[in-house]
Amino acid sequence: MARGSAATAEPEQEIPQYTHRQVLKILSGLMMAMLTAMISTSVISTALPTIVGELGGQEQLAWVASASLLTMTASTPLWGKLSDVFGRKLMFQSALLIFVLASVGAGLSQSVGQLIAARA
């Protein structure tokens, strides 16, 4: 069959058209989520010596700092596939919920191990 024939042609997907207001709403939501992640990172890096000093685990300082980066890097392909299957909006909201719950867990941690697990 010739290239582009009806038998091999894929159906074209319609690209949704958003109003200017919808685009601004979407972008502001994404920017607020990124701001939350950036604030979390900068607060932890600033307060980390005090936090680890209170919990007593100086030898595990590097793990506290890099646990979230390591898990984020390893899970990015999984989040991408899940967002293809279940939708980007749902997965974005789920990721924010997990982030908030993990932040609460990190704030309530009583040991460096708990802190590392919550940051991961």
Rank of each mutant, 00 (worst) to 15 (best):
W79Y: 05
S5Y: 05
G105V: 04
S83A: 08
S75N: 04
A2C: 03
Q13A: 13
R119S: 00
S28Y: 11
V64R: 01
L97E: 05
F99Q: 01
V104T: 07
S68F: 07
A65D: 04
I26H: 11
L70E: 05
T50L: 15
A47M: 13
L97V: 06
A6T: 08
S109H: 09
G56W: 02
V112F: 04
L70M: 10
I26S: 08
G107A: 14
V85R: 05
V43G: 05
S40D: 15
T36P: 02
Q17S: 15
S109Q: 08
M1C: 12
V43C: 13
V112S: 01
T50K: 14
Q93W: 11
G4F: 00
S42Q: 14
L97K: 04
T71S: 02
L55P: 03
E12Y: 10
T50F: 14
K81W: 01
F86V: 01
E54G: 13
A102D: 07
L48G: 05
H20F: 15
I44P: 02
T71H: 01
Q110E: 14
A9P: 00
L30F: 14
L61F: 13
P49D: 03
L108W: 09
L30P: 03
L30N: 12
F99I: 01
G105T: 02
A7G: 04
D84M: 04
A67S: 09
A62W: 12
L82A: 02
Q17R: 15
I116L: 06
M91V: 10
R3G: 01
M34E: 11
V52K: 06
L48W: 02
L82H: 00
R88P: 01
M38I: 11
S94W: 04
L69R: 02
M1K: 14
L55H: 09
D84W: 03
G29M: 09
F92H: 05
G29Q: 06
E59M: 11
M32I: 12
G53Y: 12
S68Q: 12
K25V: 09
S28I: 07
Q17N: 11
T8D: 03
